[in-house]
């Protein structure tokens, strides 16, 4: 028996559990409950255009905030004069793998009406704030969950950057700001691009974060898919929405790939 055959069970399993389900999503998206062909499921999505728009808008805000906060963090972690930056990197990146639900739950505790932040406000003589249910709270929850996904690829790229390039720029008289804007930033574009992908994707598809941080008042695409599948038991429209979401994501990945053709930003590995 040839050694390559050892991969056969793996190949069969992966095809069965990734390709077949995705094909079924397409099938359900274009059929009625009884199985006849239709495009009505897709057109029904336009009824929910505001939800779609909100999801995209919040995901964009979240991605922008993650980039603003995450880039300096990655840059500082990767800088040469930081000792012990390796263990720091582990600490900042670890939450990436930790259950997002538990982390959102922790955030909820801080933001609740009777929560820790409001108690703190009161102690400082400030008025109590209604935070849960606002877009701000959802956004904080999203940034909190997805920030490490932005930091990792940028950090990886910056760490690999040849320090002599920066030294050369310094020797040639560039001031620190110019070194960053003309040398470091352009060279870290692949990292930025893959960071944007890695944050935008989960942000636009999130469902539990918005529900918990807004106690159900803010409704995003992910929440809608959940509702169609679980509560309303309408798998056809749910599938149509999943399909639209997948296509949106593939398009955005395609755009970003153009900016980083060699995939230098590196994914998780």
């Amino acid at each position: 028996m040839k050694r390559s055959w050892y991969a056969a069970p793996y190949a069969v399993w992966m095809a069965l559990f990734t390709i077949v389900p995705l094909l079924l999503v397409c099938y359900y998206a274009f059929t009625t409950r009884s199985g006849a062909f239709t495009t009505e499921n897709l057109t029904r999505i336009f009824d929910y255009a505001p939800v779609l728009f909100d999801s995209l808008r919040l995901a964009l805000y979240c991605t922008a905030l993650c980039l603003l906060i995450g880039y300096p963090a990655a840059y500082f972690m990767a800088s040469r004069d930081m000792s012990r930056s390796q263990s720091l990197a582990v600490l900042i990146l670890l939450p990436m793998w930790m259950n997002f639900l538990l982390r959102t739950y922790a955030m909820m505790t801080l933001f609740e009406n009777n929560g820790v932040l409001n108690t703190l406000f009161e102690a400082l003589g400030l008025p109590r704030q209604q935070m849960i249910g606002t877009e701000g709270a959802v956004l904080v929850g999203m940034v909190y969950n997805f920030l490490p996904f932005m930091v990792l690829p940028i950090y990886t790229v910056l760490k690999k950057l040849d320090p002599r390039v920066i030294e050369a720029a310094e020797d040639l008289g560039a001031n620190p700001v110019r070194v960053v804007t003309r040398v470091v930033l352009p060279m870290s574009v692949p990292g930025i691009v893959s960071g944007i992908t890695m944050v935008f994707m989960p942000a636009v598809t999130t469902f539990a974060i918005s529900r918990l941080m807004s106690s159900g008042m803010i409704y995003l695409m992910g929440d809608m898919i959940e509702e169609f599948y679980i509560t309303m038991n309408n798998r056809n429209v749910g599938s149509a929405m999943s399909l639209v979401m997948m296509v949106l994501i593939l398009i955005s990945i395609g755009f970003l790939r153009k900016a980083d053709p060699e995939g230098q930003g590196g994914g998780l590995w």
Partner: peptide, 11 residues
Amino acid sequence: PDIVTGVSLML
């Protein structure tokens, strides 16, 4: 995305 993996397997 996880949610798509989830619903597609459910289907």
